[in-house]
Design a protein around this nucleic acid. Structure first.
Lengths: 200, 200
DNA sequence: ATTTTAATTGAATATACAGTTAATAATTAC
DNA sequence: GTAATTATTAACTGTATATTCAATTAAAAT
């Protein structure tokens, strides 16, 4: 009836509701109806804004990718000492906060969808590429300063991300009550070891 | 009409069909109807055997877990030299064949479901526990023989699995056309480095 | 003040889906 | 050879789903 919100407000509102329903009910449970209920709006309104559910899904992926890619976490320029800054970077990459930028269940769900949706897969590949490129540069720099020893900065970046994502996996399937940090520490140390070993 | 198959034959047949449909159409697309079509049987027959779709899902998880846990891959007892056997084990764990025991898309799908199904999560936790325990024993042994140097065999096993699963992830989101083996090699070498470093 | 645009709802549609119940035919057990 | 069992289908139900279309109301533009 009323017209009290604008598209620029409604669309993110809907995506946020979608995200919340996804956390609670998963991909199977996240129907347009439920997303609408949570906002006390009519389901048609969601279609009005996004045309199809598929497009809304992509919009949410984009939003989450953006969230993940915004590296406010990674601005460590204030730390002058190279060794210290390197360690701070590693600390951040294997931190709980970083790993929970986006709900892991939701992230995992979209990763899963990427197996059958080229569009979604492309989004995530881009996202990881951005992270990889950033780490690649950092590793090249730290190596040039003698903090670490790598010949192939890309491979080094890949190993870091592999350990990061493996850690995510570990916390879902191998954790035995111990806090996240315990094993995160081991993963981080392995990364540092590899970076300093000269093997990469 | 006819009664030409027995339960012991039909049930695995149905699960195999479910698995194939999952590969092609994903969790959302794997309806009882499609699974039945592929076998030219009536959908009701599937319900007759499994009562509910949920139970059929669990039965498939069990089957895949079994498949993954059957370690015919890991029987390396014929290799006498410890160092050689250790390297062969590492080679196997990071091999393409091992990583494709079960279709990665399907595996990922069930991993995803485990975020909202305690039953499924329990199955996978058990599965990884079995692998971890096996690796733990192996690492303790190899360490006692001086092939590697670890004080905490469990942590060592965890790092191996973390790198293995991270590799899976890498091949889905970070690979750039290069064959699986290229980066698998780097992951494997990192694992060996960590195991021999004395850090774990 | 009037027209145009956009937010919002209501009702309706078509479809796909899991599951039920009853019937039929073949196999097994006795 | 008859009875019990079980594999199989047929017909059906109920529900949840995304999406459409038309109507209404408020705001923006003129």
């Amino acid at each position: 009836m009323r017209k009290n919100q604008s598209a620029e407000l409604r669309k993110p509102e809907i995506l946020e509701s979608y995200y919340q329903v996804l956390i609670e009910e998963g991909l199977e449970g996240a129907s347009i109806g439920k997303i609408a209920d949570r906002l006390n709006i009519h389901p048609s309104l969601i279609i009005h804004y996004f045309k199809t559910k598929e497009r809304m899904k992509l919009a949410l992926v984009d939003l989450l990718v953006e969230k993940y890619n915004a590296p406010e976490f990674l601005s460590l320029a204030h730390i002058e000492d190279n060794e210290e800054r390197f360690l701070a970077l590693m600390e951040t990459l294997f931190s709980f906060e970083w790993s929970r930028t986006v709900d892991p269940g939701v992230h995992f769900g979209f990763y899963y969808l990427s197996f059958r949706s080229e569009t979604i897969q492309a989004r995530f590949k881009e996202m990881f590429k951005a992270l990889r490129d950033h780490l690649k540069n950092q590793m090249a720099y730290f190596s040039s300063k003698g903090v670490i020893k790598v010949q192939d900065p890309e491979k080094a970046a890949d190993i870091i991300i592999t350990l990061m994502e493996g850690l995510e996996f570990h916390s879902q399937f191998l954790s035995t009550g111990k806090p996240f940090q315990v094993f995160a520490q081991a993963a981080k140390e392995t990364a540092i070891l590899a970076l300093k070993s000269g093997q990469l």
